[in-house]
Amino acid sequence: MSHTLHGILDPTGAGPAQVQAPPVADRARRPPSLAGLRVGLLDNTKHNALLFLRAVGDLLTTEHGAREVSIVETKQNFSVPVDRSIVDRYREHCDVVITGVGDCGSCSAAAVADGIAFERAGLPAAVVLTDAFDITGRAMAQVQGDADYEWVETEHPMAVLTEDEVRARARTLVSEIVGRLTMAEAA
């Protein structure tokens, strides 16, 4: 800034904290593969999201060695990040989580916050957002103190796809999702 002025009040309430502590990148430890692991799905209620997540879950169990899809929940409020009790339930019932689909203003930001919360609780997570929401996803990652958090991006829009198209989309993304959840490189 080129100048400062004394006596003008700050309307943000954030003060110097807004400048932010350096990002804390808490990542859960990655398993070598999904072999024998339990998969959790968290649906954010957006159109086609649950269909997509279930299709991914099927592919992980039939083609990538996951044992089962062991927990599927739907968010009560897609705008608000998961709370402690939801994170604890997933920690108890699964080994990795897939969530999304970030396909709106507030739900995309919240999905990024969800991914960060799962990682901090020790659960590898793959968050799926459409590519129209990369800026708001990044803004929320910064708010959560994890500016470099990475998610899985897919082409916008998702809500208009037919059932077959959603399954095809799942197949396109599954290797990247496996890559995000494990130490394996995305094919």
Binding site: T12, G105, I135, T136, A139
Partner: peptide, 18 residues
């Protein structure tokens, strides 16, 4: 509007996605 922008930090093209 300014309170939403400044106190909640919800700005256009960032967390505000109109």
């Amino acid at each position: 509007g300014l309170t939403v922008r400044n106190a909640y930090g919800i700005r256009p093209h960032e967390l505000e996605q109109a």
